[in-house]
Simulated scan of single mutants.
Amino acid sequence: MGGTATSGGAAPSGGAARAPVRFAALGDSLTEGVGDPVPGGRRGWAALLAEGLGGAERDVEFRNLAVAGAQSADVHELQAWAAADFRPDIASVVVGVNDTLRSSFDIRRIAARLDEVFALLTGGGAVILTACLPDPGTALGLPGPLRRPLVRRQRAVNAVVHALSARYDTVHLHVSDRSWTEDRSLWSVDRLHPGERGHRRLAAGFHRLLAERGIALGDRPGHEPRQPPPTRAAGLLWLATEGTGWLARRSTDLLPQLLGLAAAEVGHRARGTSRQLDARAEQALAEALADLPRTPFLRGFVPHARMEG
């Protein structure tokens, strides 16, 4: 889990400083900073963005609550409460890719969880940052039968995020287009997380949108990386060390199901009925959106750990 950092400038002489702006970042490895190593740990887009929020007249209190491997349930049951206790002015909620990589994927549950997280944080006065993301199958360059099920899942997650972004008037960044998946300079050696250039692009994109609302007062994060891009040798080293373990951990859960989904893809394509799979995904998404309450509410959002406290 990330830590807490404070950045900003001193107040002008003769004037009182503004109250510090509080920024909480929720999510998974993308927000934790995987792919953007710095001496002593990881940085990532959220930390880069925090540096540009304050300007000369106010400090920034930044808390990175994101954890590698987190799913929507982790954000819903743990991170959101920690963020609410922090009482942020800005809270980023970028999660969902790990949900698409699990056999337990359920778009209705994901939608309900995110709705309640957004209700909790906006109810405390926070401006929410959201993003739609590329699907992991395309990012990893998987073959069609393996890629298409993940494409459907990520599209469903993105559609839910779009709907909730409109509902809660979030600051929403589009990063699911082909310019992201096709530009290899944006990605780290694992092909699933942004590299430094990608993290900087995310930070700059959010900063631009926040500046348009008069929220980001500092300088926009620079686009150009300070460190050289990873070499092919670095990619091979990652695969031989961390990469093998990464694939093994996911294979115990995702791979058996993904192979089944791929077999269904091949069978439907051979029969000319691939549209049925699309229709099922669209129906599940429609039901997920229809299940959302007409007005934001917090009923039911009481994890056991919270109750015991």
Rank of each mutant, 00 (worst) to 15 (best):
R197G: 02
R208Q: 13
V97D: 00
V151T: 12
S274N: 04
L48C: 03
A80K: 01
G267H: 10
G124S: 08
S251M: 04
G222W: 13
G195E: 01
M307T: 15
R155W: 11
L259M: 11
A248P: 03
R155I: 14
E224N: 13
L292N: 01
A91K: 00
P228L: 14
S72V: 05
G125P: 00
A24L: 08
S29M: 01
D74I: 03
W180H: 04
L237K: 06
H199G: 04
D169Q: 07
D291P: 02
T273Y: 01
A288D: 00
D291Y: 01
C132I: 07
P303W: 07
R269K: 15
Q71K: 14
A305P: 10
R58Y: 07
E224S: 12
A66L: 09
A204S: 15
H76L: 12
P229F: 11
P143F: 04
G9V: 03
D85A: 09
R249T: 00
H172D: 03
G69L: 06
C132W: 04
H193Q: 06
P39A: 15
Q283S: 12
R275K: 13
A163C: 10
L236V: 08
R299I: 09
A111R: 03
D59G: 15
G195S: 11
L209I: 08
H172G: 05
T181M: 02
L239Q: 07
L259Q: 04
D106W: 02
R148S: 12
R197W: 03
G52F: 10
A16E: 12
L247N: 00
P143S: 11
R42W: 14
P194N: 14
W187V: 09
V127R: 04
N158D: 12
Q71Y: 03
R306H: 14
R226P: 10
L48V: 05
A19R: 12
G33Y: 03
R108P: 05
L192H: 00
R178V: 09
T122C: 07
W238D: 00
L239F: 02
E116N: 02
D28H: 06
R147F: 01
R148F: 06
S176C: 09
T252L: 06
S103T: 05
D219N: 13
G141M: 00
G40A: 10
R201K: 12
R226E: 10
G222P: 13
G15R: 14
P12N: 09
L49Y: 10
V97G: 01
V160E: 01
R220G: 02
A10G: 10
D36P: 04
V75C: 08
S188T: 08
H193I: 02
T181W: 00
P39T: 14
S13Y: 06
G3P: 02
V93M: 03
A11R: 15
D28Q: 05
Q227G: 04
V21L: 15
F118S: 01
P228F: 13
R197L: 04
V160P: 02
V21I: 13
L140P: 02
L209K: 10
P136R: 05
A5F: 12
A216M: 11
R167A: 12
S179L: 11
G198P: 10
D85V: 00
E287W: 05
